[in-house]
Structure formats: C-alpha cells, structure tokens
C-alpha cells in the first residue's frame, strides 16, 4: 500500500545545480548540506574509479546531494548531465539491469533500494544504503520530483534506426564510444582493433532470443569515411591474424563467424552464429538501411 509522503520546497526548471531545484523535505527525510558539483576533471575525487565510466559517456557535470533522517543511513542523490541523450541512454544501459521498472524517466530500475533512471540528457541514481518500504517510497518521490524537472525527453542513439527491429532484443542494446566499454558488452580483442575513441559512436545489438540463434550486431559510426576506412583495415588485419577467411566470412577458432563491411562512415560487424544465411540477411539489411538514409554510401569490403 503506498505511503503518504509530503514534499516541501523545490521548484521545477531543469537546473539541478541550483539548490532551489531540490525538495527540502520528503516525508521525514531532510535535505542536508550544500550541493556538491563536479566536472569530468574533478569527478574522481567523488567517485574514484567509477568516474571513468561517466567520462566514457561524456559527462559534463555532476550534482550530488544527501537526504538524512535520524538513525538511518543517508540517501545519496547523484544527477549526471551528459553531453547528449544518447550518452544518458548509454550510461544507463552500461550496467546489467535486473531490477523492477518503476516508470520513472524514459527507463528506470529499482533494485534493493537504489533507483536509476535517465531522461533527456540526464542520468540519475538515488542510493540509499538501507532498504525498506519507507526508503522505497522516499526514493521514488525524490526520483519523480527530479524527473519532472527534466522537461524534455531525449532520443535514443539515432543510428539505432539502421538496426532492423525483427528479433531485436531492444532491452539489451548497449551504446559505447571506446573499446573498453565495447569489451564489457562484447569482447573482441584486448587491442583497440576498431580504432575507437570518444569521437566514435557504437551500438551492440543482440538478435535472437536464445543462445543458439543469437547474432550480435556491432555498428560503429566514425567521424568521417577516412577514419572508418582506417578502422576497417585495422579490423581486417585482426581477423586475418586470428581467423580462417572463407567466402568473405571470418571463421574463428571457437566456430563462431564474423561478417563485416563498411558503408560510408559506418562499420558493420555481424557475429556469432553458424547460420551464415541469417547473418548475411541482417548484414545487408543494415547496409541497405544506411544507404537509404541518404548517406550516398556504398559497401566497400
């Protein structure tokens, strides 16, 4: 049964760096201390180690606040302003999401007290170190209050439009810039064989609902055709050193197969299934979709 909580203070204008943006009281929890603000350069002082994750998704600013109640651990609220909505989506999707979707923001998860959600360019995590019905209600109230302050929703990565929807496992899509993040979602190599950096954008998109028919699509957008071409050359060198090349397919030692190609500034990698026909179809659908989008591209492989 929902608990009745009252909220005091706070106005809504989408500027979490301003103290007046935060509710002063939520139920028996009170806002405590001053707002702390961090930049990409200073974030490690607040969250050493994990800061690199947010820097990987182009964090611009972070605001942190605490709510306190006598006898209980603090509730910590962290608001991350990312460079783009795609980055907010990416940083939310960075982690395994096993918890309940509580309908806050564009996507949300509530797990053992912690609420995470993204909306627009903002990613929010509310962390209590206790877990109870009262804490849950308080955390959800704070989350919903903040959600309203971010007026505009944001787009998921635009390049998702090139990924066919049939059999797509949309809840498991990951977005990345660099190879350290890519390797957490799908391991290709210890080396940066796709020449990824903060200027590149990529998606890991799983297809098929079982391990037996699973295909992984990796789609990377480079700043220009030249850098994409260099990356494709690098990737082909990697494949030729580690795989048997047959009829355009790279056969790996473990029996998995890779099909890859380039279309304008996009590099397409399809992996994992022994069903080459299925892979081929997905690959050509992606290429056709990019070409149709008006990039005036053609396949070069």
């Amino acid at each position: 049964m929902p608990m009745a909580l009252f909220i005091v203070g706070g106005c809504i204008s989408g500027r979490p760096g301003n103290s007046s943006e935060w509710p002063n009281v939520v139920g028996e929890w009170r806002l405590s201390g001053e707002i702390a603000e961090y930049t990409p350069e200073t974030l490690y002082k607040y969250i050493d180690g994990a800061a690199e994750v947010y820097r990987s998704f182009n964090v611009r600013r972070v605001w942190a606040r605490k709510y306190t109640k006598n006898g209980l651990s603090d509730i910590v609220v962290d608001v991350f302003e990312m460079a783009t909505a795609a980055d907010a989506f990416g940083v939310y999707r960075h982690e395994i999401r096993q918890g309940e979707d509580v309908g806050v923001g564009q996507e949300s998860e509530y797990l053992r007290g912690t609420l995470s959600f993204w909306k627009g360019r903002f990613f929010v995590v509310i962390t209590p170190y206790d877990d109870s019905a009262e804490v849950r209600e308080t955390v959800l109230h704070i989350g919903r209050f903040l959600e309203k302050s971010f007026a505009e929703e944001g787009e998921q990565p635009r390049m998702l439009q090139y990924c066919p929807e049939e059999e797509r496992q949309s809840g498991k899509i990951r977005y990345f810039h660099n190879h350290i993040c890519l390797n957490q979602y799908y391991f290709l190599s210890d080396k940066n064989v796709l020449l990824l950096n903060q200027e590149t954008e990529g998606l890991v998109v799983p297809y098929g609902d079982t391990e037996n028919n699973r295909i992984i699509l990796i789609l990377v957008k480079y700043p220009d055709e030249r850098s994409c071409s260099q990356a494709f050359t690098s990737f082909l060198e990697f494949l030729s050193e580690t795989c048997l090349i047959q009829n355009g397919f790279a056969i790996h030692n473990d029996g998995t197969v890779t099909l890859s190609g380039r279309c304008a500034e996009y590099l397409v990698v399809v992996r994992n299934t022994p069903n080459k026909e299925h892979m081929n179809r997905l690959y050509h659908e992606v290429i056709a979709s990019i070409q149709e989008s008006g990039t005036n591209s053609r396949r070069k492989d």
Partner: peptide, 12 residues
C-alpha cells in the same frame, strides 16, 4: 561481487 551505480554498491 558485482558493481552497480556511481557508488559501486548495491545490497543485492
């Protein structure tokens, strides 16, 4: 045994 969130922590 598993990291979650900016503070690297979840009771789960």
């Amino acid at each position: 045994f598993h990291s979650k969130g900016p503070h690297n922590y979840n009771k789960a």
